[in-house]
Design a protein around this nucleic acid. Sequence first.
RNA 1: GGGCCGGUGGUCUAGGGGUUAUGACGUCGCCCUUACAAGGCGAAGAUCGGCGGUUCGAUUCCGCCCCGGCCCA
Length: 824
Amino acid sequence: MAKPKIKEKRWTVDLEKKIQEEHFSNKERYSFNPNSEKEIFVIDTPPPYPSGTWHIGAVAQYSMIDVIARSQRLLGKEVYFPWGVDRNGINIEFTVEKKTGRKMKTYDRAEFLDLCREEIEKYTQEMRNIAKRVGLSCAYDQEYLTDAPDYRSVTQSIFIDLFKKGAIVEELRPNLYDPVEGTTIAEAEVERLSRKTKLVDVRWSVTGDSKHEPVIISTTRPELICACGIVLVHPDDSRYQHLVGKSLDLPLPTAGRSKSVEIKAHPSVNMEFGSGVLMVCSFGDQNDVSVFRELGLTPFQAIDLEGKITELGDSLSGMLVLDARKKAIEILESEDKIENLVERDQEIPVSERGKNPIEIILLKEWYVRQTHIQERMKELSNEINFIPSRNKQFLLDWMENITIDWPVSRRRWYHTEIPIWYSEDRTKVVTPPHGTYVQPWKDSPPSDSVVLDRETCKELGKYEDLKSELGSLEGEEKVFDTWMDSSNSNLYVSGYLSNPKLFDRAFPTGVRPQGKEIVRTWLYYTLLKSTLLLDKPGFANVWIDGLGMDPWGRKMSKSLGNGIDASSVLECGFGGRTGSWKIKGPEGKQVALQAKKIGSECFRFWKAADAQVGDDFQINPEQIELRYFGVLTKIFNVGRFASQFEFDGDLDTIPDDLENEDKWILAEFSDLLEKAKTGYSELDIYTAAQGIKTFSTGVFASHWLEMAKTRLYNDDASATWTLHRIFRDLLSILSPVCPFFTHHLSTTLYEKSSVEIDVFPESPISDTKSWTDITESLVDFNSVVWKAKKDAGVSLAAPISGHNVPDSLKDIESALVSMHKLED
RNA sequence: GGGCCGGUGGUCUAGGGGUUAUGACGUCGCCCUUACAAGGCGAAGAUCGGCGGUUCGAUUCCGCCCCGGCCCA
């Protein structure tokens, strides 16, 4: 018996970290070769948005995407697992504003962009570190940044293509608008908050009929009375039919508009709400918008870009919405026009990022048309395989709810610029050629730009040639919604525009992995793009994971203060460091958790084997350690044990004189290989990981190893071959889940790292059934004997009599006799 | 209000018309058996959220309800 080749007595986080650092010192380790002969598999990695710390739930999701990448490599594919960082957007603008205490618009634009770029770079480095720490096998040497010229030029080129196709329009429309941040937002960015508002019952008088009793209209937005275009009652509401056709005087002073409005019947009125009479203003909510559109009314511009009431509001003009509301109530009160006033809870729409109440105002913006193409999108999404299939419903539900086109222009700065210059007479536009990143707010068009007719989008000629006819150009100052960039990620990583040959092979993109919380944004917009641009489904597979929940079963979020920082888990156990977490629960409850050692391998194993894809998963570091570190220790020790038995022969050639008990475990192992292969192929990590865990700690370690021990000590060839063949291949199929762990064991024992294996291990036994049929009785028999020894108070190594090997186990009788020291 | 998911020993969970209802952690008892005490073996512990229905038989299927979560109006 030789000394074990594996020196370490156990797996430690210190060892893990050492391996990790060596691992990524080779920068090309996980490079992507687009010219490979292998089948190409592109993963549309969600580019993380750098914002300080990385959330443990997100890191859990990424580590499972890595399991997909690694398992696809193991299945023989050329995998592109891109490393991208999403850096555009309002978040970094907020961060810089907060840090410097100055609002964006007080800066010079170029100066502000520099500050953003510097700031985001700091956070980006932190992301790269965590990505490597958790073992993501990304092509780091091919990193992409969404704010880099090459990425932004793709966004701009796609915009121009869609514009030429008529899929993008510029129009004056009612828009969701955040007055505090001064920018348009999309439906997908709207959130609802419950707030206390005053519901005011206002008395309106019938025009030219002072004898008529006043009409009561309930509203939460009296400041918008100046924008009222019509008053509606329900056609079935018998209380008000006599009013239809009459007019009402506006109860507040206005300027520059008629002082009264007509009353009409309309089915959208809720008879139960308030008095059952509804004033429709431009624009109090989405219903107002559709009523204005339907009845062809001319909207009023009651709120300006700063969120202040316009001159329309007469004495309210210049006031912020909330102040104007207060003042409006005061005026109404002083004129005795308030019938009743109650405080109530109301769900109001706010912007997701700034939590500011949203106004709907008329703005000239760029829109990606989407309402016309929902049916086609639905057809194309039927060609995509959703994992798990039920999560497709999130997408379908959202598509049902699309009511307006997607406004993509924003009045912000650290985003991709809209690549357009306008001619002096505004009838023509200049657009840059494909692949050129432009900043129209400060640059002139590149010389090879083209001129388009603004209405028809037809190409009129080269910019060079038409320059003189355009007059002085004005560059567009607006930028794109960041989803306009993010929704190109699959096109970008699949080689769209940059590598047509690759694109041909790689599109639709292999898999889009993502969390279910961004189905309505990232997934939806990406599919919209591929439908509009290529009329194709964007992906072969969409893999939608659940959310990380706290130990109380609630979603982890900043606002609840129940999040766990990724590095506290990954570094737990490094250099003797322990982890402790205090996690706030509902109603002031709090739980304190502690762990001694976790690290990336334990964490990944837990996520892979403990939660089905798409299910929400509770993250409890204490449980992760308790349930999975022991599994690692167990497998590590099997390796250490195996490493004392030298095997010089060829592990790939199956000996023809295998013992029966070895055939049995090889059969069990063959079944596991089959199961893991199917699991990995179908992106079902859970089944694969569970199977590996159960096999390695169960029948393999507890039953077969005990049976084979004696023979191993006696250098039995069959036992040694079986042990090493299984352990080597076991490491290979575990490597997608625990790359550092298996890398260490496989390089020490078999000279080749399991993370480099690109052929899925072959089953050593083909007809497994006759052997696996005995597993149950074998496990039972062992239990019976062990229990008998225990009851008799003898050691497990002591001989025992009176136990006969059952008929079903006759094939391995001698192994059982020597294992248990059975005597007659 | 709508959609989706879930409710199984103290905790987390598997399963799915007939099982002795799976496993893990915890608890308790025994064992340092030459890989592993960061182990091993064993024991206790569950009227499978409630009420109805289908069925010879329901924890499983159906309906309603209750509770929790997420998403959306």
